[in-house]
């Protein structure tokens, strides 16, 4: 296995073109190095992008632009993220342990596209778009189209993720991310659930977005649940109906972490809890 470090986005994409399917992008390495060690991937060339300038950091002026090399730890502590999308900070703060959070990146988390990727669900409810740069230039993929299959994204093999953009954050909007794991930390999500609500002044739901991870081959939006909540005033019947819709929309599996039945079973209660947090934040105008 070879290792090479790219100095610019152009150099990185040129290397991706040169090595084709043998190439593997390396950012924080918290997924790639484990997958390589376990033989789950067998990269011919590791292309390190950690030294490319301009890919780190969070900037905002209306919309929020997140560099793909921004670490989970930075996301979890970012004032801008905590003000506009606290669910994303909450998700980042639950990835692995502190060591993983200190080197693992949001770009790596979404491009690895694990069904359990913590940051994916809050990005989906935030309406994030993904900026991909390759030899043919730069294009933008809207959140829902980015995750296309188990460990598959819309990124072409010669493209790199150069930014994640969260659109302008409306008034009276709040979100939340709840993660179910066996322990209090150091867990891969058994279920992860993000909710975002925009409330009218009288408490009517103007906008509702629900997304979940570890319940299907990809992190996913749950449109059926969103439609039920839309226009409701968060009556318990509406929340229960949304919970039912949520359980119908998912297709979880049995694995060593939990059974499919357990994953389905916790969803309605988890949704009600997440909606409660999101609504409270919407009322306070935070998140």
């Amino acid at each position: 296995m070879e290792f090479t470090s790219a100095a610019s986005v152009e150099e990185a994409t040129a290397l991706l073109v040169e090595y084709g399917t043998a190439a593997q992008i390396l950012a924080g390495g918290t997924d790639v190095m484990l997958q390589q060690a376990r033989g789950e991937i067998s990269a011919g060339v590791l292309i390190h992008i950690g030294r490319i300038p301009g890919l780190v950091g969070i900037t905002g002026n209306g919309s929020v632009r997140i560099g793909p090399l921004t670490t989970h730890r930075s996301l979890a502590r970012s004032r801008l993220v905590l003000m506009t999308a606290p669910a994303l900070a909450e998700a980042a703060a639950t990835v692995g342990g502190w060591q993983t959070q200190a080197v693992g990146t949001i770009g790596g988390n979404v491009c690895n596209a694990s069904p359990a990727a913590d940051t994916a669900a809050p990005l989906l409810v935030a309406g994030a778009s993904f900026e991909l740069t390759g030899p043919r230039g730069t294009r933008t993929v809207v959140g829902d189209s980015f995750f296309i299959g188990r460990r598959q994204t819309a990124r072409a093999t010669d493209e790199i993720l150069t930014a994640i953009v969260l659109p302008h954050h409306p008034e009276r909007t709040g979100d939340a991310y709840l993660k179910v794991g066996r322990r209090s930390a150091m867990e891969v999500a058994v279920v992860g659930l993000a909710a975002r609500l925009t409330l009218d002044v009288d408490g009517t739901v103007e906008g509702a977005r629900i997304a979940a991870c570890s319940v299907a081959p990809t992190p996913m939006r749950i449109a059926e649940a969103e439609e039920i909540l839309q226009g409701s005033r968060m009556e318990s019947e509406a929340i229960a109906a949304a919970g039912e819709a949520l359980t119908r929309a998912v297709s979880p599996i049995d694995d060593a972490r939990a059974t499919a039945a357990y994953r389905t079973r916790v969803l309605p209660g988890l949704l009600a809890r997440a909606l409660g947090v999101a609504a409270a934040r919407a009322e306070r105008g935070v998140g």
Partner: peptide, 9 residues
Amino acid sequence: VEVDPVTGR
């Protein structure tokens, strides 16, 4: 102990 009625934790 305390049990979480949603997650069973």
